[in-house]
Design a protein around this nucleic acid. Structure first.
Lengths: 150, 150
DNA sequence: AGGCTATTTGCAACTAGTTGCGACTAAGGA
DNA sequence: TCCTTAGTCGCAACTAGTTGCAAATAGCCT
């Protein structure tokens, strides 16, 4: 029997507790991986890292937990324009939406925050009377370095 | 919101000929399906319809042709926020990018064209010195009808 | 602490999309 | 017209993600 989690629960785990969502050892492992990630992870990377914390974690539990987090608006799902195949990437949601730019040549992902993006969303809310829950703007093209190299 | 205006049938095929891309009977069937579609189609719908025109069309040929069209900027690929499962949808690219809004309650997809979106892309090109080839803005939330029903 | 029950899990079988490979064929040239 | 060959195809086996179900368990209630 492993010792109980002694670590201070992270933001995601705290959110779960507040909403009365059950915290299982599998979920704790998955949340910890996402909370401590320093880059965009895909589902299989999350699975592998979570299994190091708890070997019983299954593929389907990872996908189910990701869906749960997505539904609660705690993570964002990204395609990154499918430049590295068909999979999806995940990142903790931060207070401000950002645009993802994927370079079609070198594969670099960059992020960009813009007031114009905020204004655009306000316009959609007003003109279409549409209440926005989640939004995703992804751009494919050539980054400044690769443009020069042409 | 209205779908893009109808174009002269055969535009995609004409583009292929101009670029010296081989037109096979399988590709002709797939292009015809896409050119005459009146709504967003997913890959399996395209496969089924193309097989009615040419029974020899294979799943992998559909995916390969879609990728080809995507690479040449002739179609756009959409997730529609995965409200109907994991698959992708495809539509002919038109001269002006549009935003897709998916209602998380009734599933309706609406489209929106905005000068602010154009301005945002210009800002990214300028501020990030990033050359945009393809962009995709998808929004999930509640449409005007479903907001009222709350 | 021990029991109850709704939630969650692992598993296995399914849908969606990709890839390597040998066979086939469109299109240009003799 | 036939020949050549690069491009494309179908197939089968693979990766990515989902789902139905029976077994396990978190968290509540004595």
């Amino acid at each position: 029997m492993p010792l109980p989690e002694t670590e201070i629960p992270g933001r995601l785990q705290a959110f779960f507790a507040d909403r009365g969502i059950r915290t299982t050892k599998q979920r704790r492992a998955i949340l910890k991986v996402i909370e401590t990630a320093s880059k965009h992870l895909d589902a299989s990377q999350i699975l592998r890292r979570a299994q190091k914390l708890d070997a019983s974690v299954d593929r389907s539990t990872v996908y189910r937990t990701l869906r749960l987090l997505k539904r609660h608006g705690l993570i964002d799902e990204l395609d990154l324009m499918h430049i590295h195949g068909e999979g999806h990437y995940y990142e903790r949601k931060v207070h401000r939406d950002h645009i993802h730019m994927a370079c079609l040549r070198c594969g670099k992902i960059s992020e960009f925050v813009s007031d114009v993006f905020e204004k655009l969303k306000q316009q959609v809310e007003k003109d279409c009377r549409f209440h926005i829950v989640v939004s995703r703007l992804e751009i494919g093209g050539y980054c400044s370095t690769c443009r020069r190299a042409d």
